[in-house]
């Protein structure tokens, strides 16, 4: 709790420009992380199987971003630039809500229950996407933060966790340079 409230105070102290920059950075990171886990993790790949071909997903802050958007292509996620209505959209009602969730002060399930988000699209797709986001966070985040970000702390063995996370961070970094 103390760690979380310190982060809360830190993020809370950012001015509008800095908050926007922080959220944009974390959004871009999440988009790349999803692309990366979609090709490295079997569990995530199995979940993506359940989306129809051409499925696209957008996470954004209302009304006009920051945002990221992905498309399913050949069983993986790839970045998507289309401007049509996405198959599934998860939208933060306010920049500040996004900042709280992306700094892991408020976990995603709580943000959902707290009406911070609008989910537009098929409910089953939303639940599947939530499982992918949970899985991605459980691989990527240090244990202590994951426990706060998720309803249940991940059950990955610690050594395996570190290796998987390291591989992923390498992929995300490569993705960042490829842009």
């Amino acid at each position: 709790m103390p760690a979380s409230s310190t982060v809360d105070a830190m993020v809370g102290a950012l001015d509008v420009k800095a908050t926007r920059a922080f959220v944009a950075l974390m959004m871009a990171f999440m988009g790349r992380a999803l692309v990366a886990v979609s090709s490295t993790d079997d569990e995530v790949r199995a979940e993506i199987e359940g989306f129809p071909e051409g499925f696209n997903f957008e996470m954004k802050v209302l009304p006009a971003g920051p945002r990221f958007r992905l498309r399913k292509l050949a069983g993986r996620f790839v970045p998507d630039a289309a401007a049509t209505r996405p198959t599934l959209a998860i939208q933060f009602k306010h920049l500040r809500h996004a900042a709280r969730v992306l700094s892991f002060v408020e976990c995603t399930p709580a943000a959902f229950a707290n009406d911070r988000l609008v989910v537009d699209g098929d409910v089953a797709f939303a639940m599947r996407m939530q499982r992918i986001l949970d899985r991605m966070q459980s691989i990527l985040l240090p244990h202590a933060i994951a426990a706060r970000a998720l309803k249940r702390a991940p059950a990955l063995p610690l050594a395996g966790h570190a290796v998987a996370a390291a591989k992923l961070y390498a992929r995300i970094a490569r993705g960042a340079f490829a842009d």
Partner: peptide
């Protein structure tokens, strides 16, 4: 059941 929206609100994961 895992695809049901109600599950998102269950108090236990």
């Amino acid at each position: 059941a895992l695809d049901e929206g109600a599950l998102a609100y269950n108090p236990v994961a």
